[in-house]
Design a protein around this nucleic acid. Structure first.
Lengths: 156, 156
DNA sequence: GATGAAAATGAGCAGGG
DNA sequence: CCCTGCTCATTTTCATC
């Protein structure tokens, strides 16, 4: 269970700690301690507090999809039939491994998704053979990311 | 400098290791070792190989923006004047901390960005006072994410 | 490639200010 | 809230298979 997040106070030291770990989750606490000039134990205490608050939701290894040959990223706006139950469509989308994000959105579309494919041909296949096949999907609009210039988390 | 990524061969054991660490970057190597039935040293060797290949581009603590009161995520399509130098606009966008992603895209817009704000009012402020102020930005289309249903990395 | 063991480093806890 | 000192766990290396 996650914390409620109420009453969380983050001071400058907390922010420094978080900034280090957001860059590199495996950075040793003692190394951070040396950098910011307090003891490892103090950092450890603060991390426990931050975890308990729910602010830290985990850590991940980031893998570079290009090395695996995945070089085509695209956003796809999806129009769903009015009668369609959106959650059912989302469940189907979740089965497509190339779909990395899925949002209900305001505006033109019902759903906006992010997909990662090897190349344009692969993207076309995912669109035609998987996404368009989902019941309720009437039309899609695809925006291929030619180049991602910024990719970061919230700034602390 | 990153590796070229050529000649990278990932076998089933590598994939198992990566799957564990993509879920939790701080999982001890020895724990993974017990799970998949080889020695810690072997995992360590493989990780060094995977890092050298460039497949692993690092690790990050994931922080939960909701705890900090950031609950409004939106995608914004940006139309730039034809004469505008896009890289200059991107440089300005990078200065706006609420902008988390920025892509050059095919299709209607020049640029698609993802922003994270505290609420709709904050989003409006970022749009009017920061994004619209950038030289060359002529028009924007905003899609607020009502609910993110899927958020994951490439499946290994 | 994988292994086990040794050496180096870090994590986590207790006691105290 | 922070520190020091201690113990235990983990990482990292290395000789060997």
């Amino acid at each position: 269970m996650k914390s409620t997040g109420e009453n969380i106070k983050i001071d400058g030291i907390d922010k420094e700690i978080l900034r280090f770990l957001m860059e590199d989750a495996r950075k040793p606490v003692l190394e951070i301690a040396r950098n910011i000039g307090i003891s490892g134990a103090a950092i450890h205490q603060r991390l426990r507090k931050l975890e308990a608050s729910g602010l830290i939701s985990g850590s991940k290894f980031i893998i570079n999809p290009k090395i695996l040959g995945y070089t085509t990223m695209a956003y796809i706006g999806i129009y769903l039939d009015k009668a369609m139950s959106n959650p059912v469509a989302v469940k189907e989308l979740a089965k497509i491994p190339e779909v990395l994000e899925c949002h209900y959105t305001t505006g033109n579309w019902s759903i906006l998704i992010k997909v990662l494919c090897r190349d344009n041909e692969h993207l076309m296949h995912v669109l035609n053979k998987h996404i368009q096949q989902i019941d309720g999907v009437s039309r899609t609009e695809t925006f291929i990311s030619l180049n991602q210039q910024i990719d970061r988390q919230i700034s602390i």
